[in-house]
Design a protein around this nucleic acid. Structure first.
Lengths: 251, 251
DNA sequence: AAAAAGCAAGAGGTCCGACCACCAGCATAC
DNA sequence: GTATGCTGGTGGTCGGACCTCTTGCTTTTT
């Protein structure tokens, strides 16, 4: 079947839209952050109804390629690439993924990412990592702020590793974990310990010690897993309805 | 927002549909293979228009949770879980993924998968692997058939590893590679060598040698990568006749 | 003037209702 | 008995009306 663009499967028109966009991207006339024409125009261009065009847009948005903003326009995703936000979460519900499996996958990915970062990380990445560690120490009293730098730290490692695909996979998993994560961090009594571990990871990467980087990263994530598991266990023991009063601040 | 399950981000109604389905799945009243009510009815149930319902369905279909069949109905996906088919391919086009990065990711994942399979694989998995290897040897003359067993072999390892999440990630990557793969296999002169490697992998797993399993798997994939790279390179230079068929006869 | 309030254009979001295309099973014709 | 064809149900497409949101500009107020 020559000539047929990839992307097999679903509906004709939907795929027509998807492939059209893909072509525009591959041709370079559509780059991350760009805005696509208004639906009404775009639909007319492709000679399909607006409804069908919207189906295609929805498809692209679902897998994180497009970014729709009500009242403003539709844009090509730019930030850190990420597969459809809730896809893993959905598939998880469907196939009964376990939390430990999530963490195992994460350990594997981030461990390798750390090792690669140690091997390939450029000076700019190392500096960024250092920066984030510093910020972490500076915000040990502000969980919300701390979490931001935590996420950025891991994200920077993924960049330093020089393999965007692995970065995407990591992002997919962590974002699936993020919801619960926020809770955990807010309860963690010792963000300082966490910061210490991040500092260790940073040092290992800085000294180009791939093995050590992987080990420390895995140790760090194992600890994070334990914390989150505890949280999950304690939150399983309460009714579905609950208002956000009382001490065990969660939700 | 009370009642707001996870899955943040996009449009209200779309997410309402997605969350509703998610709830049904989590509640167990919707299992893989099941069929959902006809659009017209379902829309009425949720008190939204059919168009909006369709948007939600599309979203779910885009990430491989639903399976729509024109003239028949809409079903919950059942087969091996897989993130939206072309998502990686799309993101790749958008962010300029390289082929070697794909393979690196694959090596990492499948290497770990093989190691885990060696540790956790149950007898049934080992038997299935053995079966596939046998079939491979039996079809070294039939590339198309061989490929089927090749894929099944790797998929079985993923199952044996006991971590469906890693399996999904692997599936996502390999399916992204599959298109080119078919070509490669058809040209590979020595499927027997490939079969030999698979046999080695099988033996390592059978003997519970995780380290060896990972190593052999990585070696195998490295070779596959080389083959595919050659193919890609040569197909770039083949506008006319391929004068002097050199090269590919190595390994 | 500078700041606040209000207005209007442009973009996406939702809905309706009709009609098309596909598939499966049943009825009919041979 | 097989082949044909019809029909009911289901998803796919359409277009065009109307709603909501965002933004920037205009008008009013201070």
């Amino acid at each position: 079947m020559p000539g047929k663009t990839l992307t097999k499967g679903d509906n004709h028109l939907t795929m027509q839209v998807v492939n059209h966009v893909r072509t525009l991207i591959e041709k370079g006339s559509l780059k991350p952050g760009d805005r696509i024409p208004p639906e009404r125009e775009f639909a007319q261009m492709l000679k399909i109804s607006r409804a069908s065009l919207r189906t295609g847009i929805g498809y692209l948005a679902a897998m994180g390629v497009m970014n729709v903003r009500h009242g403003v326009g539709t844009f090509v995703a730019d930030g850190p690439p990420e597969i459809g936000r809730s896809s893993l979460s959905l598939l998880g519900a469907l196939h009964g993924f376990q939390l430990w499996q999530m963490f195992e996958a994460r350990r594997l990915l981030e461990g390798s990412l750390a090792a690669l970062a140690a091997e390939r990380g450029r000076e700019e990445h190392l500096m960024a990592l250092s920066e984030e560690v510093t910020e972490m120490y500076a915000t040990v009293q502000d969980p919300a702020e701390y979490l931001i730098h935590d996420v950025r730290f891991h994200r920077t490692i993924a960049q330093a590793a020089g393999n965007p695909i692995l970065a995407v996979l990591m992002e997919t998993i962590t974002s699936s974990l993020y919801g619960d994560r926020r809770k955990t961090v807010e309860r963690t009594t010792s963000l300082k310990e966490s910061a210490d571990m991040h500092r260790e990871i940073y040092r290992a990467i800085r000294t180009r010690d791939a093995v050590e980087a992987r080990n420390v990263m895995e140790r760090h994530l194992k600890m994070a897993e334990k914390a989150q598991m505890n949280e999950a266990a304690s939150s399983q023991t309460k009714a579905k309805k609950k208002r956000r009063a009382s001490g065990t601040a969660s939700s």
